[in-house]
């Protein structure tokens, strides 16, 4: 794998999406991390799954959609914000916890 200049921008965009997802997640009062022991926790937090959703959505958008707004940075920021709001307000309704555990 050779990293070209374009790929540097893509990596920067992934970083931006993750940072905005975490920051907006914290603003809408998601906890930074799930409570310990994390492996048994169902709590939605700014790092998990918000950052994972931002990363996955960014990959889908960057791979499938052609964009050139500031080399994709605007798209990355929008994805980050959307991921945080999606996790906070919609995720538990679309993918409820077992036993119908919507908060």
């Amino acid at each position: 794998m050779i990293i070209h200049a374009n790929e540097t921008y893509i990596i920067l965009n992934y970083g931006l999406a993750i940072i905005f997802a975490i920051v907006v997640g914290l603003i809408v009062k998601l906890p930074l991390l799930p409570e310990r022991p994390m492996r048994d926790s169902w709590t939605l937090s700014a790092v998990f799954p918000t950052a994972i959703i931002a990363l996955g959505l960014s990959a889908i958008i960057f791979k499938m959609v052609i964009f050139d707004l500031y080399l994709g940075m605007v798209v990355a920021i929008i994805i980050g914000i959307f991921s945080a709001l999606f996790t906070k307000f919609l995720f538990d309704h679309i993918f409820p916890k077992p036993g119908g555990g919507i908060k």
């Binding site: 994972i52 990363l55 960014s58 990959a59 889908i60």
Partner: peptide
């Protein structure tokens, strides 16, 4: 990209 998309789908 493929790995990131896989992570989201696995989640």
């Amino acid at each position: 990209e493929g790995g990131f998309i896989a992570a989201l789908l696995v989640y």
